[in-house]
Every structure is written in structure tokens, then in C-alpha cells.
């Protein structure tokens, strides 16, 4: 089971502590000698580095979320952003409102998807085409 540090920035909020992840010895020295509250700094570092600040990773079986989270992953260039954007666009009404999608909205969605896919096919893949598509779609909506 994976473990990860719960947080590396619980108390200092990274103010003047940019070295916190990379060099804890340097951080300790810096804080103890420069901070007005060296004891507080020391306790903070012990807390950060402590095993108590680690959490066991676990699957999201007992989730209290009302909507699921999806991760689209893959090697750069496989179409992650296009896929994620298309899913998000389709589920947006579901995510932001409980009202059913009207026929006009559904038709518009279909046209937008076809336009987007044609655009992708004609111009290549990657983030650029989607950004362009979003702009085009925004103009259409206006």
C-alpha cells in the first residue's frame, strides 16, 4: 500500500521555507537560528517528518462524494486532454445543475462535438486545437 506525506506545509505555509522538501537539515538550521521561536520551529519540523504525518493510501470505496472523479492518463500525445475535455463538456449540465438538458442544448452539444472532432481531425492533436475549439465554441455561444 502506498504512503504519502499528508502535508509538507502545515504550519509555515511556505513563507521563507522553499527548501522544506529538499533539505531538511538546512531548514532546521535556518529556522532554529533565524526564527523568533526556535523551539516552535523544531517541533514543526519533527511533526512534518514524523510518521504521524503520513497517511495510508486507500481506494475511494467509502466515498462521501456526490460526483465521481475520473483520471485520464497516458503517454503525452495519446489524447488525454481532448478526452477529458469532451467528458467534462458532456457532463457539465449534470455537474452544475440538476435540470435536464433541453433538446436545443443537446442538439447544440452534438453539433459542438462534431465540430470539435472534425477540427481535431483536420488540424492535429494536442492542447492547441482544444483551446482553439473552446474559443470558437465560446463565440458561437455568444
Amino acid at each position: 500500500m502506498k504512503r504519502r506525506r499528508r502535508s509538507l506545509v502545515p504550519l509555515w505555509e511556505r513563507k521563507g521555507c522553499s527548501c522544506i522538501e529538499s533539505d531538511h537539515l538546512l531548514l532546521l538550521t535556518t529556522l532554529v537560528f533565524s526564527n523568533r521561536q526556535p523551539l516552535h520551529a523544531l517541533i514543526s519540523i519533527i511533526r512534518i517528518m514524523s510518521d504521524d504525518n503520513m497517511e495510508e493510501d486507500r481506494p475511494s470505496t467509502a466515498t462521501s462524494r456526490r460526483r465521481p472523479n475520473i483520471l485520464i492518463t497516458g503517454t503525452p500525445g495519446v489524447g488525454k486532454t481532448s478526452t477529458a475535455a469532451s467528458i467534462a463538456v458532456r457532463k457539465r449540465p449534470d455537474e452544475f445543475t440538476q435540470k435536464p438538458v433541453s433538446e436545443n442544448a443537446a442538439l447544440f452539444q452534438l453539433l459542438a462535438d462534431v465540430f470539435f472532432h472534425s477540427f481535431l481531425e483536420n488540424t492535429g492533436k494536442g492542447h492547441g486545437p482544444y483551446e482553439h475549439w473552446k474559443i470558437c465554441r465560446g463565440k458561437q455561444m455568444l
Binding site: 472523479n69 483520471l71 489524447g79
Partner: peptide
Amino acid sequence: KGIVADFHVCEIFPERWFDLVLVLRA
């Protein structure tokens, strides 16, 4: 709200964050 996230690294995230992981292949 739900989140549809896309990233080329998947192992750094806590497992509990995601309910579905789609690995795209080409």
C-alpha cells in the same frame, strides 16, 4: 462536483481521489 483530471503521471496521486482511471493508448 466531480473532477475529470488529465495528466501523464498517475502514480503520485492518493488512491482515494479517483473512482475511475482511464489509461489511453496509441
